[in-house]
Design a protein around this nucleic acid. Structure first.
Lengths: 235, 235
DNA sequence: CTTAACTGCGTAGGACATACGCAATACGGG
DNA sequence: CCCGTATTGCGTATGTCCTACGCAGTTAAG
């Protein structure tokens, strides 16, 4: 039964045996993953090639394949490690979920490549599950069903991911296009073609540099909506 | 001034001149983009190579570069075309935004590759702006500020994108791992390590096959929260 | 008819992931 | 103590990409 597990999961959960024969490994999975995360953080996911990673580690490219089945598996390991420990939550479901979502967003800002590395399957990494667990814990003292809790934690996760996706891309984008985004918008958006958008632009809704408002605004509304549900169930 | 525009934007907005000299083009940008979308829809973004695209079009790979500066530009064109026209919205901001978000989610289910093709800059394509415009239009008769409208439309967009990201990936994932996700979860998740998660699993919150609930549940809560804001501003 | 612009495309180069197999290494059993 | 064996690092080679460059054929303008 355990032998039918994909190799990736075995390694992730520490089920893989460590028979100590042969030469001392000079490379370790931890070092490989940590260095890979470093490269992806600094230069983006596109800059992470097995060759560059090996160069940074001072080994030959093919040496990596003794510790990692392929590049996709490396990405899974990276996604497992990069988030780190989820934050401790303050008491109260509202502050708890808000803290959790903001911390998650912080992780995505620090490691924007996570948003590009598509999982290809539902989360089974301990690192991801630890965050999911912590998010669910925020609802500990509420009358919500477990299914509702899961759905609502995911909704908060979507907000964090979505906003980070747009903003992380903005931060790493070419500044010359990003800078006068408003000017370009105003140039193309005419009232006859995009009436509502033109109105918003004329109102200055796209000026200023706080595009991350959409996260806090969306989160506040979501929390309000959850509060309605909770009080309805409590009363 | 117009000459300083990136080529990609010129083509997108139809600003590019069409001096009619030389041979009749047998290829057209529309046909290239449509075929590329077809391939990405059917076989995934990874299967879309310039070579395969050319083969499907019956031309040589390098011929494509007469109509498209590079592969990234092709992806921008695809992202501009694939969403199509945004839906007509029913009266009332609540039904309007819900209709908009569900339609957007439908587009992402039909073209999951959109979620992998990272934009690299804020949206400036007419196709994307048409959807943004339609979303803003849902708030036409509300007392919300234009900035609030933008943030809330984005929040709804995040929900749709986030849920589609997880589910589109689920649908295209390897079924053997996806099928008994609950069994794998139950095997790894222990109460001492992931207390809240273990409780949810024991409660059966991860059984059944309606993971898309998180979209509708999150959207309903978000709409409730917006309603609170609107009534507060109206009264 | 000449000229200039424009199209399709053949060639080639460079980056990349990775299958395969070999040599060196170090532990376990005899 | 020594031999077999598992294990590590890695050199070579293959196939797949994207795409720079330039040539040849085609068509409209003057």
């Amino acid at each position: 039964m355990a032998s039918e597990l994909p190799r990736t999961l075995k390694v992730l959960w520490g089920v893989a045996e460590r028979p100590a024969r042969g030469p001392q490994p000079t490379l370790s999975l931890d070092r490989i993953v940590a260095t890979a995360i470093e490269i992806a953080d600094r230069d983006g996911l596109a800059a992470l090639s097995m060759a560059r990673l090996a160069e940074r580690l001072g080994c030959a490219p093919m040496s990596l394949y003794r510790h990692v089945a392929n590049k996709d598996e490396l990405l899974v390991f990276m996604q497992n490690t990069a988030p780190g420990e989820p934050p401790a939550l303050p008491p109260g479901w509202r502050d708890g979920l808000a803290t959790w979502a903001r911390a998650l967003r912080g992780v995505l800002y620090a490691h924007p490549w996570i948003l590009q590395a598509t999982a290809g399957r539902p989360p089974l990494e301990p690192g991801q599950l630890a965050w999911l667990d912590r998010g669910l814990a925020a609802f500990r003292d509420t009358p919500l069903s477990h299914r509702e809790r899961g759905d609502l934690v995911l909704a908060a996760l979507y907000l964090a991911r979505g906003e980070a996706h747009i903003n992380a891309v903005l931060l790493s984008g070419t500044p010359d296009v990003t800078a006068d985004y408003g000017a370009l918008l105003a140039r193309f958006v005419t009232a006859d073609r995009f009436p509502a958008l033109a109105e918003s632009i004329a109102d200055g809704a796209f000026e200023g540099d706080e595009p991350d408002n959409s996260f806090e605004v969306g989160l506040a509304r979501l929390l309000d909506g959850i509060e309605l549900l909770i009080t309805a169930k409590s009363g």
